[in-house]
């Protein structure tokens, strides 16, 4: 079982709010409850981002399942120029591709570490950032 994930509040801070849909809502809603879930197929493979189960054969449809919330930095960049005011005020910051223990990759921010100390292979864990009532997005910090 995965342990409960921290969720920090960022409602009305200007952080972009994802326009979720019926397929993606469970991913963001679960994180808002402190659960990091990903889609898992009956054969044990995982995927991200979520797709409608109906696009797969009836005997191989994914469902959301608890994931570890741990991963490593697969690659990253330090953004030093960005036009959107919310992000411009926060330069420089890290955008990373995190590979989870389950083998899926997500884009995310790496926080709680100086940007110059982020490196490929850095071990990170997920936390939630609440951007709207009932919706949190995954962020990552060193584990």
């Amino acid at each position: 079982m995965s342990t409960a994930v921290d969720v920090v509040d960022a409602i009305d801070t200007g952080l972009p709010v994802p326009e979720v849909d019926g397929v993606s809502r469970p991913f963001f809603a679960a994180l808002d409850r402190g659960e990091f879930v990903l889609q898992r197929f009956p054969d044990g493979t995982w995927q991200h981002y979520p797709r409608p189960p109906e696009m797969y054969p009836p005997d191989n449809r994914p469902d959301f399942a608890p994931a570890s919330g741990r991963g490593t930095v697969h690659t990253f960049t330090v953004i030093r120029q960005m036009g959107v005011p919310y992000f411009k005020e926060r330069l420089p910051y890290v955008v990373a591709i995190v590979e989870t223990e389950e083998g899926v990759r997500l884009m995310g921010s790496i926080t709680d570490v100086p940007v110059d100390e982020v490196h490929i292979g850095l071990e990170v864990e997920v936390y939630g950032v609440r951007v709207a009532e009932g919706l949190s997005v995954p962020f990552w910090r060193p584990s």
Binding site: P18, V20, D21, Q81, M82, Y93, S109, V129
Partner: peptide
């Protein structure tokens, strides 16, 4: 904003 951007917009990538 409503497609793959859901999973990337919050991070300020360029």
């Amino acid at each position: 904003p409503a497609t793959w951007g859901q999973y990337e917009a919050p991070y300020g990538n360029t």
